[in-house]
């Protein structure tokens, strides 16, 4: 593969801990290969900072193949940066050119408080799942997997919703910091399958209630979440959630 190198200016959010006010710091990086991933560019910078006796930039990352959902940088005003349907760890430096200035911030949302630098606390997502994002089946209770056929179309749609990696980019992209795309993906995934049917009413009501409790904002249907989602989760799921929610509200006792 052809590659070139570039020199860049980075403006990165630094915040020592949750109580610190935080500020932007500017760094120059040079000889960055276009073949590097965005996080590898941060590795190079951090190695240099350590050698210079400075504190490296804390950021979350783990699998570095776009599936664990841990990486979470807000790059030039976009969660996960300029590419579509992509995570920060899969963003490569060929997306940038020599001389660029890149601004990097953490996710900003009341329900995702900053822990340090670019690291945020997303445990609110876990608590939303605890409120009902599951099917209540104990181990050992299952019938044969093929006992209940599922229409391919529905199975495919359920899979498309289940592809959510829980990164929180939808919240970070939303002007209201709404988590509705995340919640709706789970509601839709389970409501589309016959196995999820028995609990569909309580599930949607409880998950939405928990979402509100966590301090996420309301959905005003701008579609920023869908445009940002690294896994292409569509706002059709929000429509499904609204339908589920309405049915549940009208028919619950």
């Amino acid at each position: 593969m052809e590659h070139n190198t570039m020199n860049l200016t980075l403006k990165v959010w630094r915040q020592k801990n949750a109580n610190d006010r935080g500020n932007f710091e500017t760094y120059q990086v040079s000889d960055i290969s276009s073949e590097m991933s965005f996080l590898e560019m941060f590795d190079v910078l951090n190695e240099r900072l350590i050698r210079e006796g400075k504190d490296p930039i804390a950021f979350d990352h783990d699998c570095r193949e776009g599936i664990c959902g841990m990486c979470s940088m807000y790059i030039d005003g976009k969660p996960h940066g300029p590419w579509t349907q992509n995570t920060t760890c899969q963003l490569h430096m060929r997306a940038f050119k020599d001389g660029d200035t890149i601004v990097v911030e953490p996710w900003r949302a009341k329900a995702f408080p900053v822990v340090k630098d670019l690291v945020v606390d997303r445990t609110s997502f876990d608590r939303i799942i605890q409120a009902g994002g599951y099917i209540s089946v104990n181990t050992g209770n299952a019938v044969d997997a093929n006992a209940l056929p599922v229409e391919k179309e529905k199975a495919d749609a359920a899979f498309a919703a289940a592809a959510c990696i829980g990164c929180g980019a939808c919240v970070a992209a939303c002007k209201n910091s709404s988590a509705l795309l995340f919640v709706s993906a789970k509601v839709a995934h389970l409501a589309l399958l016959p196995q999820g049917d028995p609990e569909r009413k309580t599930r949607v009501v409880n998950m939405v209630a928990q979402m509100d409790k966590e301090g996420f904002g309301s959905c005003t249907a701008t579609g920023a979440c869908e445009a940002t989602c690294p896994k292409g989760i569509t706002i059709e799921n929000i429509a499904r959630l609204n339908k589920e929610y309405m049915v549940a509200s009208l028919t619950s006792k």
Binding site: I135, A142, A145, L148, A155, D156, Q195
Partner: peptide
């Protein structure tokens, strides 16, 4: 069987 019952979309 268990995974399908949990809603794993194979």
């Amino acid at each position: 069987d268990q995974c399908v019952a949990q809603g794993v979309p194979f």
